[in-house]
Structure formats: structure tokens, C-alpha cells
């Protein structure tokens, strides 16, 4: 699912601990913006099936991360040698291009800067958004 395909006013709006969609609706490589208990959250299903939740707001430009791109993280050990980091995924903001590790919420350029993680879980064939993770 391309995030742009979900108009903001059509976002699921749910209370704390409520299901936001069925498990099958969020396929690998997709993101879902939700309003969970009044909070903007992006639920991410990485291509390897992992499930993550982040506050849906770029630290720098304030745009919704769910409008950005979900990519494999790219690193390098020498100039010109681009290497994908298997199993590590980032959201790249649609505005300023800031990259966030989806598992930690941390920017790739500064380990001291992170968006808040939000607990998400899959149970009974549905995806639930809970309280912010510790």
C-alpha cells in the first residue's frame, strides 16, 4: 500500500488498544497511518514481515512519515560502495529526506535523535496499537 492512497480523513481512528486493521490488510512493505487514541502513528510492516510503530511526524519538518518511503537501509565502508543492510529498514521523510530506523525510531545521521516508538502487536488476526513503547 502506498501511504498516499489513504486520505488522512479516511485514516482509521481508534481508541487505546483497539485493532486498526486486520493482519492481512497490512502487507510486507506497506505503511498505515492511524489516529490511535488521538495520536498520529504510522504502523509499518517491513518486507521481512516485522511490525513496527512510530510517531507519524518528522522531527525536523513535521511532515507525516507515512507519506515517505520505506527502504532497506544503505550503508558503506568506503567511498562509492553502497551496501544494503539486510534486515534494517528506514522510513525516509517525504519532505527533508531525514531517515529513521523503523525498529528504533533513531535518525541515521545522529544516534541522539529519535522519533517516539509506539507499541504495535498482531493478535487474533488483527493489528493493535497500544501505549508508546518503553
Amino acid at each position: 500500500m502506498h501511504a498516499d492512497s489513504v486520505p488522512l480523513d479516511a485514516r482509521p481512528a481508534v481508541g487505546a488498544g483497539q485493532a486498526v486493521c486486520s493482519a492481512g490488510e497490512l502487507r510486507p512493505g506497506q505503511m498505515l497511518p492511524v489516529l490511535a487514541d488521538g495520536r498520529d502513528v504510522v504502523v509499518i510492516r517491513t518486507p521481512d514481515g516485522g511490525l513496527h510503530g512510530l510517531e507519524d511526524r518528522c522531527l525536523h519538518c513535521g511532515r507525516r512519515l507515512s507519506h515517505g518511503r520505506l527502504h532497506v537501509a544503505v550503508t558503506a565502508t568506503d567511498v562509492g560502495r553502497y551496501e544494503e543492510e539486510q534486515g534494517r529498514f528506514v522510513i525516509k521523510c517525504s519532505g527533508d529526506g531525514y531517515e529513521y530506523d523503523v525498529a528504533t525510531g533513531t535518525t541515521l545521521f545522529d544516534s541522539a535523535r529519535s522519533v517516539t516508538r509506539v507499541a504495535v502487536r498482531e493478535a487474533d488476526g488483527a493489528i493493535f496499537v497500544g501505549a508508546p513503547a518503553a
Binding site: 544503505v74 550503508t75 558503506a76 553502497y82 525516509k92 527533508d96 529526506g97 535518525t107 545521521f109 545522529d110
Partner: peptide, 15 residues
């Protein structure tokens, strides 16, 4: 620039 364009120069590890 680095914050925004790190993807292009991933061999750079610090600000």
C-alpha cells in the same frame, strides 16, 4: 545537507 542526503554518502558516519 547530511541530515537530508545521507543516503547518497552512506560512507560518511558522522555529522
Amino acid at each position: 545537507q547530511y541530515r537530508q542526503l545521507r543516503h547518497e554518502v552512506p560512507w560518511v558516519k558522522r555529522l
